[in-house]
Structure formats: structure tokens, C-alpha cells
Nucleic acid binder design. Structure first.
Lengths: 221, 221
DNA sequence: ACATTTTTTTACAAAATCTTAACACAAATA
DNA sequence: TATTTGTGTTAAGATTTTGTAAAAAAATGT
């Protein structure tokens, strides 16, 4: 179950966000001032925390910093009223993962959350993945084939990780798009194919283990 | 995505049900008389159909019977105004899966729907299907006969899965077309025959277990 | 601002698969 | 038995899907 905490004092905004997230069947919890927010965030484990910068009691920056100092590693998205560069930098400095400027569309917010969840799940899974003669180190985004380092782009890397984690399963393009790109493309996109093509060229030139499942997508043997 | 069709002429009840189901994030469609209901149920694939017994146009029993005759295998829940044993028995006779008496609470209805969905998903979502010396792995789209891998095309694979899930039942071409091809039988298409032929050649060269049911279609013993 | 890298889109070729149509054959019916 | 109806089988042609390269767009670095 995905748990999200909203720390936001403006009720109207809080309600709106809560409504959208419930629609997406996340488990939602809310706090309406800084103190309460910090307490909730500390006492329970959330996958994502939406944190308003301007709050009564304790402001968002402080909360974020304190949480990180406590060792909290939830994915924190800062919410702020204006697109000000200063807060953005400061937010990331105190340990936020992302930053959304109000007003934002539900779609935008949910896209950001999905990115966060993806990143989170990558974080929590195995640090080092071994597949055949490949060694994939997630923290440093490095890949070795027979101890020879291979340079992959970010998307190639993420695709490889996802394939390995789900090895054996046929993965549809939609599934790959939602899980790696973070949202669903409308219309038909061939991005996945192109990335598979490149990945094959880099790590699997004989196309031995990245198999095409015609009509569905791809799978790793 | 779970799709539910409500066939109910009383708007107030329809609205109520629809509201509850949308809350549970099902995809909901509605029809307000028998003819429309039958058409919608036939033309599209629903996981669950909620079917009022008393309807203008065509009554619930008729619709249910006709749908079953067409090979429709949605989970059908009959709705009736009074708890009368006669209708209950009759309903099950014409092929309904469950029976709910009005007035019912949202909770009761959703519980019944969940039962239906579970039943449906149990059948279709088995990771591995075993039939005689065949092993069909749905997540990877692989088929083994006596541990020997057999390469099937997507349609062949889907056909095999459907046959196994419905083993023992005679399946009409129409049913196979609607459920596997996603459109309704158009009179003289013999696509199914060709695919059966190919499937037999691949997994059943002796034509032992894919039997022809003359005048109807095919079945797996 | 410009150059470089990465990602996405687009177009076209190649391949696999699906469908149609035809004919052969078997089963049912008169 | 002859006729009709339904199915098996085949192969050509149509369609769909994927591979690949290259251009366009977006992101990043200098």
C-alpha cells in the first residue's frame, strides 16, 4: 500500500489534493500545521510526503531538514505558491526530492508522485543486481559486463534494472511506460522499442536474453 | 481495469449504485432498458453485470439467458425487488451467478461484486496452467509440452489459455471471437478454424484433446 | 549562446502473424 | 446414394508489429 502524507494548512488545497490521491487509490493522511506534520511524518512511514513551504508552526524547509537529519528517507515533494528559484534551491538543499509550484494540475502532481514512488522502489530494492555476466550497481548507476564497464544513459539503465527485477515476465510497453516513464503516453509511442534497441546494442548484441514477445512487449529470459 | 455494467431502469437506484462503484474506482457503464442492456452487454466485455429482473423492453431473465446462450461469461448478479424464492431459482437457472434483493446496502453489493471478481480472476489469473503434459505460463507467455518449449504466436497462446480455462465446455466460434478477438462474429469468418488447426499442429498433432463440436465450435477434453 | 548528449518522434524496411479464399474431405440429411 | 452442410488444410496476400536509422526535440554541459 502506498502511503502519502499531505502537510498543508490551506484546507481547500489539502482537500483537492486528498481527493485526487484517493481517486488514484493511495492511502492519504493529512496534517494542517508544521508541528503536527513533523510529528506524523516522524511517527509513521510514508512513501511520499507533500510538504507546503509556508506553514504555521514550523515551515516546510525546517521540517524537511529535520526529517532528513532524523534519517527519514521518504520522497519529499515541496509545494510552494510562487515559482521562486531561491526556495527551489533551498528546498533541494535541505533534502527535498522534488518541487512543485502552485497552482499545479492534479495530473502534474500525480506524475511527480509516480516518479517519486518509482525512485523509492528502486532505492529500496537490491543495491547490486547480478544477471548472467552483468553486474548492475544501482547507487552509482554503473553497469559492468564481465567486469568491463559499460556506459548506459539513464533511461537505458532504468530499463535494464526493471527488466532484471522482472526477469522472466513479459512486460508490455504500457507497463514499461507507466513504471519507467512515470505516466501513460497517449497514442502509440515507440520510445520503448528504441530504448530496447539501444540497450540490446550495448549489452546484448546477439539479442540472446532480451526477447521480443510479439504483440505484448519484451522480456528478459 | 474492472468494468461493470448496470442494467437498471430506476434512475435513483442506478445512480446510487453507480456512485458507490465509482468510489471503489471501478469503470461503470449503464443501460436503462432491456434492449439497450442486452446490446451493451453483448458488444463489450464486462467483468460484472448487475441486472435488474424487472425491466422495460426485455426482462432480466431473458437477457441473462440470451447472454449465456451467446457464450457471454461475465459474472452476472441479478437484482430484484422482493426476496422471492421463485425468481432466485429461476435466475440461477438461466445462468446468473448471484442474486441480491433490494433494498441492499452498498457494502453488501460491493461484497458480492468482489466475490465475483475473485472467482473470475482465480480462473484467469493463474500464473501457471497445467493441462495434461502441457504447462502454460501466462506471465511469460511460454508453453511447455513435456518440458519441451513450444513457440506459439500470441493468438495461438491466447486460444490455448482460453480453452484450458474453459476445459470441458464447448466453445462456439462466436464466443471465441468475442472473447479473444474482441469483436462479434461476422457471419462467415473461419479465422477460428485456422487457428485451431495451427494450435493442433503445434501442441496436439494427434488431435486427441482439442475436439471439434460439430455445428458449435471446439472444446478441450 | 553554443555544443554535446540524451530522449523522443518519425519514417521506412523487414519480419511475423493474421485473415481470406479456395478446395478437399467428412459428416449429416434427405 | 446423392446432396447438403460443416470442417480440415493450404497458401497467397493483407495487415500488424517490430527493427533500425536518422531527424527533431529536450536536457545538459561549457
Amino acid at each position: 500500500m502506498t502511503r502519502i502524507l499531505i502537510i498543508e494548512d490551506e484546507r481547500s488545497i489539502q482537500r483537492l489534493i486528498e481527493y485526487d490521491l484517493l481517486q488514484l487509490s493511495y492511502e492519504v493522511d493529512s496534517a494542517f500545521d508544521g508541528i503536527e506534520g513533523y510529528k506524523k511524518a516522524s511517527s509513521s512511514n510514508y512513501n511520499v510526503i507533500l510538504l507546503d513551504v509556508m506553514l504555521p508552526g514550523m515551515n516546510g524547509m525546517e521540517i524537511c531538514k529535520k526529517l532528513r537529519d532524523d534519517g527519514n528517507n521518504s520522497y519529499i515533494i515541496m509545494l510552494t505558491a510562487v515559482d521562486d528559484e531561491y526556495n527551489k534551491i533551498k528546498g533541494l538543499e535541505v533534502g527535498a526530492d522534488d518541487y512543485v509550484t502552485k497552482p499545479f494540475s492534479p495530473r502534474e502532481l500525480s506524475a511527480r508522485i509516480k516518479v517519486g514512488l518509482r525512485r523509492e522502489s528502486l532505492k529500496t530494492s537490491l543495491e547490486e543486481l547480478i544477471y548472467q555476466d552483468l553486474r548492475v550497481i544501482q547507487s552509482s548507476y554503473e553497469v559492468y559486463k564481465k567486469n568491463q564497464k559499460i556506459d548506459l544513459t539513464l533511461k537505458e539503465f532504468e530499463l535494464l534494472v526493471y527488466l532484471i527485477i522482472n526477469k522472466g515476465k513479459a512486460l508490455s510497453r504500457e507497463q514499461l511506460l507507466t513504471n519507467l516513464w512515470g505516466y501513460s503516453y497517449d497514442g502509440d509511442s515507440r520510445v520503448v522499442d528504441v530504448h530496447i534497441f539501444k540497450l540490446r546494442k550495448m549489452i546484448d548484441p546477439e539479442s540472446n536474453f532480451i526477447k521480443t514477445v510479439r504483440g505484448i512487449g519484451y522480456k528478459l529470459l
